[in-house]
Design a protein around this nucleic acid. Structure first.
Lengths: 203, 203
DNA sequence: GTCTATATGGCGATAGAC
DNA sequence: GTCTATCGCCATATAGAC
């Protein structure tokens, strides 16, 4: 059952806007395209959301919040550092596999308007320091002797995000633009990154 | 001596366009801003380059080509795999430190218009497979027993690029938006990534 | 070659009929 | 609430004086 079939006009607009904004960005998106995608007239978007800026902010806030909450869950779980990291990789890979445009979208929009960050973190109730400090404390006492957890987390996310955002380039130079082979590359990558991380923290 | 002081009008336009395009992207850039940055009138840009698209392509082709050539040099050098990788990290860190906006710029523009890639690789004379195959061959016989060199290179670039492109977010949540501390974080990161890579390939 | 002034088109936003 | 028609602005691009 397609959820959008029975949804209200406002929900249809929101879903369409989400798709268009995420793939084209705030500047690249067109209100006309969102209207087409939602199967209605352009004027209706303004009737419900008054401006493109408003519509964008509604979409971006939700995406940003959900994405960061998801990151927190694995790191806040009750487990050893090693287990946490493996769980984190599992969940993060699934997250970006099913939302491949989101990481680049968030990075681009934050860089375009960095002032969004402060208000966004405040409004969304995200407390990243809580997550990171907790990770810090556990890590220091345990297996991670000489590794700064910040560097480790940055490395893991970078290893996972880069092949997604740079997909067109890598798919071209590695696999002669073969989409299926690249999907396989991404699939096997989860275990490979896990092994790399294990080597890093266990050495 | 500022090179732009004595350069021709066309060179001034090119340099200004490079700065604006790299930081704002093709869609975000404005011809007026490029003209202001070059210290001249908007009409002159069209006199020399005819269209925004033309000017952009001239800039993008150069940046793309130079960036990928630079990557190749380290991996094509005569050395062991380990030495190659360390040299590659050294050069790549320096490259993106002095061109922090370029990686995101390239990724964005390629994703916006993936068809650019084929013609670009052809025109620029880049042969990435040569580089990668060479790396493959050396790697297989040597220390990298169970590691796919493709995954390793993707991991390294991801580890290095991510803290640059996601800087506003990471600087905020890690260091309360302290710019100096984040610069230090980036500086120490070169050696940290080297150590991580060594653990990965030596385990 | 370099400027000012203007044409042209696209997009966000609004007015107003239904 | 939903549509058609249109306004007004801004950005690329061009015309034409100097």
């Amino acid at each position: 059952m397609d959820k959008t079939l029975n949804s209200s006009t406002e929900e249809k607009i929101y879903e369409a806007a989400r798709r268009v904004f995420v793939s084209k960005g705030m500047e690249g998106a067109r209100m006309q395209e969102i209207a087409d995608e939602a199967g209605m007239n352009k004027a209706l978007l303004h009737y419900y959301y008054r401006s493109k800026e408003n519509l964008f902010k509604a979409v971006f806030k939700d995406i940003f919040t959900k994405f960061f909450r998801k990151i927190g869950t694995a790191l806040l779980s009750e487990a050893t550092v090693k287990e946490k990291l493996m769980l984190f990789i599992d969940e993060y890979v699934d997250l970006i596999q099913s939302n491949p445009y989101v990481p680049q979208f968030i990075i681009n929009e934050i860089n375009r308007d960095p002032l969004m960050l402060k208000s966004l973190m405040f409004e969304s109730g995200i407390e990243p320091q809580k997550i990171l400090f907790m990770f810090d404390k556990q890590a220091n006492g345990e297996t991670l002797k000489k590794i700064d957890p910040r560097h480790l987390v940055v490395s893991i996310i970078g290893m996972l995000v880069f092949p997604i955002v740079a997909r067109p380039i890598l798919q071209m130079i590695y696999f002669n633009d073969d989409q299926d082979v690249y999907n396989q590359f991404l699939t096997e990558r989860k275990e490979i990154v896990k092994n790399m991380v294990l080597k890093i923290i266990e050495a």
